[in-house]
Amino acid sequence: MRRRSLLLAAVPAGLVTLAACGDDKSASSKASPSPSGSASSVPPPKIVEGPLPAITAGKKFGEKPTVAKGDGEPSKDLAVKTVIAGGGRTVAENDFVQANYLGQVWATAKVFDNSYDRKTPLVLQLAKGSVIDGWRYALQGKKVGSRVEMAVPPTWGYGSSGNAQAGIKGTDTLVFVVDLLDSFNSKSSAKGKEVPQNDAALPKVGTNTNGSAPSIDVPKSDPPTKLVSEYVLEGDGPAVKADQSILCQFKGIVWDGGKTFEQTYGSGRLSQFSVQQMQQVLKGLAQGVTGKKVGSRILVVVPPSLGYGDTPPPGGVIKKGSTLVFSLDILAAM
């Protein structure tokens, strides 16, 4: 039996859900491209170019779009169009995407959700069971920086049950406009500016950005008794807030002996966790990521008082009184 991740939400491909990504405000009363049970066993759709309703305002990438009502009957297939072609990384299945989007009903043009007004892009994984199949198939092969419009029939949306909370019927075709802001996979790394590591009393962390695990060299001295959180690579994104969740790569070792107790590098997965929930598990790590910029690699040294103390996880290299050392790449915050 696979041991539960020490970071609660290390997510293999296909297991992350929208509920784990967003805050309560963004998910409580709106429909989003989150999993639909009815879409889990259907065959792949045929992808066609239209019909698709016109975008009548907000036509630039990143602007909140206004979309006309669908004209006539929508296609029974998945209609997809690249409205604006980006030049970034090509998105593949099981990647995480960061996107702004607007969703409305074909027949009525009723907007049931959009991320533009919240000013908080959505982060989710294009994996079976993690997002409606319409998104999963429509966004594969698209490039970061693209605006994509799609019309999703119920079969690849919320199924015959619809989404009553959002006013979506089981017969509704849904129209989405999606601005692809970024994408991440298990080989992603922070890309920030290198910060000098001059304190000989602290571990030195590698600065490679090729998706491989960075080295962590622990000095032959006693560990600090207070929390340490320092930039190794400083990104230029917004600072992580205490009420957000983050998507990250990480490596965790114990100070004494330098043994790795867990890492995402080389595992085919990323880690995603709520900072608030992490407060209940590893208070020092939650405090260490708070206030740090997205796109950064940080060194976090967690003393026992802010870690597991005298109650370490059973069966591992973490012992009573262990000081923990993390190298953590903050890929996205949501």
Score class of each variant (00 low, 15 high):
Thr173Ser: 13
Tyr158Asn: 02
Ala190Trp: 12
Phe112Ala: 03
Asp182Pro: 00
Leu122Cys: 02
Pro121Cys: 05
Ala109Glu: 11
Val144Phe: 05
Ile132Pro: 04
Asp95Pro: 05
Val152Trp: 09
Gly145Glu: 07
Gly145Leu: 07
Thr108Arg: 12
Val177Cys: 06
Ala127Met: 00
Gly87Gln: 12
Asp117Ala: 15
Tyr101Glu: 03
Asn198Ala: 10
Gly162Cys: 11
Val105Pro: 00
Ala166Tyr: 08
Lys169Ile: 00
Leu78Ile: 11
Gly170Glu: 09
Arg118Asp: 04
Asp199Trp: 08
Ala107Met: 02
Gln140Arg: 14
Asp172Trp: 09
Asn114Ser: 12
Glu194Met: 04
Lys143Glu: 13
Leu102Tyr: 03
Ser188Glu: 01
Val205Tyr: 13
Gly206Asp: 03
Ser189Pro: 01
Ser161Ala: 08
Trp135Phe: 15
Leu124Ile: 12
Phe184Val: 04
Gly103Thr: 14
Glu149Leu: 13
Ala99Ile: 15
Ala190Cys: 10
Ala107Ile: 03
Asp182Trp: 05
Val131Arg: 09
Lys191Ile: 00
Pro196Lys: 15
Val144Ser: 02
Thr82Met: 02
Ala151Ile: 10
Val152Gln: 03
Thr155Lys: 15
Val177Glu: 04
Thr90Gln: 11
Arg118Leu: 05
Val205Lys: 05
Pro121Phe: 10
Gly129Val: 04
Val175Ile: 14
Val148Asn: 09
Thr171Glu: 13
Val195Thr: 10
Gly145Tyr: 08
Lys191Gln: 13
Val152Glu: 02
Ile84Asn: 02
Arg136Leu: 06
Lys119Glu: 13
Arg89Trp: 01
Leu174Trp: 09
Gly88Ile: 08
Leu78Tyr: 11
Gln104Met: 11
Ser188Ala: 14
Val177Trp: 05
Gly206Arg: 14
Ser146Phe: 10
Gln140Ser: 14
Asn208Arg: 14
Asp117Ser: 14
Thr120Asp: 04
Leu126Glu: 10
Pro196Arg: 15
Gln104Leu: 14
Val123Leu: 04
Thr171Asp: 14
Lys191Tyr: 00
Ser186Val: 00
Thr173Leu: 01
Val105Phe: 06
Arg136Glu: 04
Ile132Tyr: 05
Lys169Leu: 13
Thr171Met: 01
Phe184Trp: 11
Pro121Trp: 08
Leu139Tyr: 08
Lys110Glu: 08
Gly88Ser: 11
Gln125His: 06
Phe96Gly: 02
Asp133Arg: 14
Ser130Arg: 11
Gly162Pro: 11
Asp179Leu: 09
Pro153Arg: 15
Ala164Lys: 15
Glu149Lys: 13
Gly162Ser: 07
Leu174Tyr: 12
Asp95Ala: 10
Thr171Ile: 10
Gln197Phe: 12
Gly145Thr: 11
Val148Arg: 12
Gln125Pro: 03
Trp156Asn: 06
Gly167Ala: 08
Glu194Phe: 02
Gly157Ile: 09
Arg147Ser: 05
Ser161Asp: 12
Val97Arg: 08
